[in-house]
Design a protein around this nucleic acid. Structure first.
Lengths: 231, 231
DNA sequence: AGTGGTAACCTACTCGGAGTAGGAGAACAA
DNA sequence: TTGTTCTCCTACTCCGAGTAGGTTACCACT
C-alpha cells in the first residue's frame, strides 16, 4: 500500500534495482531504470502467480507506479511477458551455446555438454522456466514461437556442422525437423523434471544423450561414436 | 442474427447436429442434443478463431442460444475448451492405440505404426490439432496437461512392455521420462509439420522412428533390431 | 379444462481487468 | 520568468466472463 516502493521478496536483481530506484529524490526515476524495474517486478509476479494471475495493475503498484507508466515503458501485457521471456531465453541460449563451444570438437561431447547446460539452466531457475517458457496459461504465441524457432535454429546449425564433419551432406529441411524434435524432447523433459525434482541435471543429460545420439548417428552420420553411447 | 440456427460452414458433424436441431418445434431442444451442438459449434469457432478470439457469446449465438444456456450445459469457457480437447484426444489416442495393436508383436514395427498413426491423425485434422492440442493462446493448463499425461502413460506402457519382451527390467521412472521425451518430440514435429506441409506422414514417421528407435534399443534393450534402423 | 411442476430459455445485469485520454507538477534551459 | 520536457497520475472506456432472477412452453395428473 505504501506508494513508494513495493516490499517484494526480491530475487537479488530486483533488490538491486529497487535500491537504485530508492536512491532517487521524489520517486521520480529515469525512464530506463524504471523500465528495468518494471520488467523485474513483472518477472517476479509472473513466476509467483502466473500470467493470468498477474494484472497490469499488480505490476504497476508492485513498482510503486500507475498503470499508464507500464504501458508507456514496456507496452501491453503480452509485450511485457515477451520481454521477460526474451531475457530468459537469451540467458538460456548463452549458457547452452557457451557450453557447446567449450566442449571442443567431438560432436557427441558437444551434444552432451549442450544437454547438460540446458538442464542445469532450468534446474537453477525452475520457477522461471515453469512460469515463462513452459507456461500453460500465457497466450504468448509469438514469444514462445520465437524462442522455439531460435533454439531450433541453433540446434539445426550444430547438427549441420556435425554432419559436415563426417563429410555427410544432408537435407536442410530434414535437419530442421530433427532439431525441432530434439528441442521438443528437451521441453518435455524440462516439464517432466518439474514433477520429478529428485533427479539431477546430469542424469537427465545422460538420458537425453542416450536417447537421441544413436539415432542421430544413424540418420545423419552424426558424430563418430562406433557402438558406445553417451561419451 | 437469425435467432434459430446459425449458418456456419459446418464440418459435417456440426451440419448433422444442426439438422437434428432444426427438426425441433419452437427452437426448444432437448438438453443433450443442445449440449452436443454447443460443443460442435465451440470446436469450430476455436479452430477458426482460436481460444482468445472466441467469446462465450459467440458460442451461444452460434448455436442460436443465449449465454446462460452455455454455462448451464457445458460450463465455463475453459471447461468448454477442455471438453473439445478431450474429444480430440480420445480420437487421437484411439487411432494410435489401434494402429499399435494392429502392428503385431515386433516392437520396432509397433513404434513405427504408432508414429505413423499419430502423424496421419494430425495430418487429417490439421486445423483441429493447431487450434486445440498445439494451441498457443489457451490457458488450458489442465486440459493440455491431462492429454499429455495420458499420452505419456500410453507410451510408457508400450515401452515397458517392449523392454520386458527383451527380458529387461527397467526403472519405471526412467521409462516415464523417456516416454515424455518421445511425446515432446511428437508434439514438436506436429508443429513443424504445420509449417512444412509438403512432407508426408510416412516421411515424418520414418524420421521419428529413425531418430528414436536406436536410442531406445541402447537405453532399454528395446526391440531386437541388431544394427539396422527404422524397420 | 385446469393446475402444478419442470425443462429450456431469456434479459439484464455485476465484476474485473486491459488499455487510454488528458492533465499536473518537477526540473531544467534560456 | 517562461517555455519545454520528462515523469507520473486520476479517471475514465470497453469488453468479455460469469450470474440473478424471471418467463414461457410443455407435460403429467386430476
Amino acid at each position: 500500500m505504501t506508494p513508494g516502493t513495493g516490499p517484494r521478496t526480491a530475487s537479488g536483481e530486483l533488490a538491486a534495482i529497487e535500491e537504485e530506484v530508492r536512491a532517487h529524490p521524489h520517486g521520480r526515476v529515469p525512464r530506463d531504470l524504471r523500465r528495468r524495474q518494471l520488467l523485474a517486478v513483472a518477472e517476479q509476479l509472473f513466476v509467483e502467480r502466473g500470467y493470468a494471475g498477474t494484472s497490469m495493475d499488480d505490476v504497476a503498484t508492485g513498482a510503486g507506479v500507475s498503470k499508464p507508466i507500464v504501458y508507456d515503458l514496456v507496452g501491453s501485457k503480452e509485450q511485457v511477458f515477451e520481454a521477460c521471456m526474451a531475457r530468459a531465453a537469451d540467458a538460456l541460449a548463452a549458457q547452452v551455446a557457451g557450453a557447446v563451444l567449450a566442449a571442443g570438437e567431438d560432436a557427441a561431447a558437444r551434444l552432451h555438454a549442450g544437454a547438460l547446460a540446458w538442464f542445469e539452466f532450468i534446474g537453477a531457475r525452475r520457477g522461471l522456466w515453469d512460469a515463462l517458457l513452459a507456461s500453460h496459461d500465457a497466450p504468448a504465441s509469438v514469444a514462445i514461437a520465437a524462442v522455439r524457432a531460435r533454439q531450433d535454429d541453433f540446434v539445426a546449425a550444430q547438427l549441420a556442422a556435425g554432419a559436415q564433419d563426417q563429410g555427410r551432406r544432408v537435407d536442410d529441411e530434414l535437419v530442421g525437423a530433427v532439431a525441432t524434435a530434439m528441442n521438443g524432447a528437451f521441453e518435455a523433459l524440462g516439464r517432466w523434471w518439474s514433477e520429478h525434482p529428485d533427479r539431477t541435471a546430469a542424469e537427465l543429460a545422460e538420458l537425453y544423450t542416450g536417447l537421441v545420439l544413436p539415432g542421430l548417428v544413424g540418420l545423419l552420420d552424426w558424430a563418430d561414436v562406433p557402438g558406445g553411447r553417451g561419451r
